[in-house]
Design a protein around this nucleic acid. Structure first.
Lengths: 231, 231
DNA sequence: CAGTGTGAACCTTTTCACAGCA
DNA sequence: TGCTGTGAAAAGGTTCACACTG
């Protein structure tokens, strides 16, 4: 029986950070690094780096550190970046266009091979070197290009339907940029990026700062008003 | 002494989801909801909803549920969305343009009031109804518009310098879209959105699926190769 | 002897399960 | 009676600190 090693989700989320930092090091001619050095370059702490990397295996050398090129290879392999991933983008609005053109995807092996939209007026237009096709053609396009990952860049109202069509067409990983909750069968991976959520979180802390500043100046507005009793 | 209630970060991150779900309910004429109903609409489970909302206060009615309009108000207030936040975008490339035009920001009170770029050739162009200005003018623009939040949409190489300029100009909350680690003083809030990281995480799980499928078919390639000893 | 790899302690978050209230 | 609000338990993630090794 094969034991699948349980790499924690949190670790998986940081591997791309390490990879980016390592690639930068390699480009600047670095050949080895310590957990300390990698931690700084990736914006985390060194204990986390060591623990995370230990889930992949024992790739460091005690007293020395990690070999940059070798570690790049291991992280790439773990993330599945030794192969190209054909990507489909549904929804050719502002965001879809920006993503179709985004260099960062191609650099990491994610090739945008198809764009689809429900608007027949957009069909035929070329964006980022790829021709826009009608969403009805999705099944054929997915088969033809071997699409593995679909990005949803449609308005919120269309997101669920597009997701359903993606699943029906055989796509098993979806990244949703539309501000809507969508559901997919359990065998399909789903992640989301909500641009305005991050902004709202910043707003929360920004407001908190303003309130705290007020309190310090003896004006205990908001917080006092809503403060809970001692528990 | 004013006791600042400690709302967990994880909860803060979900408040925008609840808010979006609640606003949708209100638009469809809903007046009350249960933790169960809100959970489904927000894509989480009901225990989480109840615990999260309990950090804000006791806004539900036992045996009944939550009043949608009232809860919207409370969540908005908590997130600081009862006021407008003037936003500056640095870097008018594909992504900067898409964000300058993004309806989802304006809908939630985040108004893009200024665009800046280092390329003098872009200065004067109007994007999303706002004129592009030169990055050197940032301090004056921040003062003039009362900018609270800055978005970095520059290439990775320029991100740290732009962040430094934002801080110097008085911006205290930064959302970084550039694929680079940047550092800011502790009093400045910093969050990041890395578009390609989510894709890489999907790649990881997609690969994992392929490997598991192979194993089931008796071809134990990758996993067996790298599996760790029993501990 | 510098720096990895890792148990153990600690902290945060999630989930459970039910008392308590409208 | 039905659903909230919340202690308590469980799970997950982070940090500490040091044994171990090249």
């Amino acid at each position: 029986m094969v034991r699948a090693r349980p790499i924690p989700e949190a670790t998986v989320g940081r591997l791309p950070l390490y990879l980016r930092a390592l690639v930068e090091m390699a480009e600047e001619g670095g050949t080895t690094t310590s957990s300390e050095g990698l931690a700084e370059a990736a914006g985390v702490n060194s204990a986390k780096v060591r623990k995370d990397l230990s889930y992949l295996g024992s790739y460091g050398t005690r007293g020395v550190g990690y070999d940059v090129a070798y570690l790049i290879h291991q992280v790439r392999r773990e993330l599945g970046l030794t192969q190209d991933w054909p990507v489909l983008i549904a929804g050719v609005g502002n965001l879809g266009r920006a993503l179709a053109d985004y260099r960062g995807f191609a650099e990491r092996g994610f090739r945008v091979v198809t764009l689809v939209d429900a608007d027949a007026g957009l069909v035929g237009e070329v964006v980022g070197g790829v021709e826009v096709r009608h969403v009805d053609e999705m099944p054929a396009l997915v088969r033809q290009h071997g699409v593995a990952i679909g990005l949803i860049c449609t308005p919120a109202g269309a997101a669920q339907e597009v997701a359903d069509r993606m699943v029906a067409a055989g796509i098993r990983s979806i990244l949703n940029f539309a501000p809507a909750v969508i559901t997919v069968p359990p065998e399909v991976s789903l992640r989301k990026v909500d641009l305005s959520i991050e902004l709202q979180i910043l707003g929360f802390y920004e407001q908190r700062k303003a309130v705290l500043a007020d309190v310090k100046q003896g004006r205990g507005r908001q917080l006092a008003e809503v403060a809970e009793p001692a528990r």
